Simulated assay, not measured.
Amino acid sequence: MSQHTPTSSLPRIKDFRIAIAVAEWNGHITGALRDGALDTLRSYGMPEKDVTVVSVPGAVELTFAASKLIETGSYDAIIIIGCVIKGDTPHFDYVCQSVTQGMTALNADCDIPVIFGVLTVNEEQQALDRAGGSLGNKGAEAAETAIKMVALNRHIDEL
Score class of each variant (00 low, 15 high):
114 V>Y: 12
128 L>Q: 11
137 N>Q: 14
128 L>K: 13
106 L>A: 07
108 A>W: 07
73 G>F: 08
143 A>N: 05
144 E>S: 04
84 V>E: 12
95 V>K: 11
127 A>N: 04
134 S>H: 01
88 D>H: 04
134 S>R: 15
132 G>M: 02
82 G>S: 08
82 G>C: 08
98 S>K: 06
78 I>M: 03
76 D>R: 12
130 R>W: 07
136 G>N: 13
112 I>K: 05
120 T>H: 01
104 T>E: 02
69 L>E: 08
89 T>S: 13
120 T>A: 12
140 A>L: 11
112 I>L: 07
100 T>W: 01
108 A>F: 01
87 G>L: 05
107 N>F: 00
103 M>P: 00
78 I>K: 05
74 S>N: 14
94 Y>E: 11
82 G>L: 02
119 L>M: 03
90 P>L: 09
145 T>G: 03
92 F>Y: 13
106 L>K: 05
106 L>P: 13
109 D>A: 08
73 G>W: 11
142 A>F: 12
119 L>I: 02
75 Y>R: 15
130 R>G: 11
116 F>G: 01
90 P>H: 01
129 D>T: 03
98 S>C: 13
114 V>R: 08
81 I>R: 03
103 M>E: 07
123 E>P: 12
72 T>Q: 09
121 V>R: 07
91 H>P: 06
94 Y>T: 04
134 S>D: 04
86 K>P: 00
77 A>N: 10
126 Q>V: 12
90 P>K: 06
75 Y>F: 15
76 D>A: 03
99 V>G: 03
81 I>S: 05
88 D>C: 00
134 S>M: 05
100 T>K: 11
122 N>Y: 06
118 V>R: 03
70 I>S: 02
75 Y>D: 00
127 A>P: 00
85 I>R: 03
119 L>E: 06
103 M>Y: 00
97 Q>V: 00
77 A>R: 01
82 G>T: 13
117 G>L: 06
122 N>H: 02
115 I>N: 10
112 I>W: 06
121 V>G: 00
135 L>C: 09
116 F>K: 14
132 G>N: 04
79 I>G: 00
70 I>T: 02
74 S>Q: 11
145 T>M: 15
104 T>H: 15
135 L>E: 10
145 T>D: 11
145 T>Q: 15
133 G>W: 06
81 I>P: 03
140 A>Q: 15
131 A>I: 08
129 D>Q: 14
132 G>K: 07
83 C>Y: 13
78 I>C: 05
72 T>K: 09
126 Q>A: 15
118 V>L: 15
93 D>L: 07
95 V>I: 15
105 A>S: 11
106 L>H: 11
87 G>F: 14
70 I>W: 01
72 T>G: 09
144 E>R: 07
74 S>I: 00
83 C>F: 04
108 A>M: 14
75 Y>S: 09
128 L>C: 02
124 E>P: 03
73 G>D: 04
95 V>T: 10
99 V>E: 12
107 N>Q: 14
76 D>M: 05
119 L>G: 05
90 P>D: 12
144 E>M: 05
95 V>L: 02
105 A>T: 12
127 A>F: 05
126 Q>C: 06
126 Q>I: 09
82 G>H: 09
92 F>A: 06
92 F>D: 11
95 V>W: 10
136 G>K: 06
68 K>C: 04
71 E>C: 01
81 I>F: 13
117 G>R: 01
137 N>K: 10
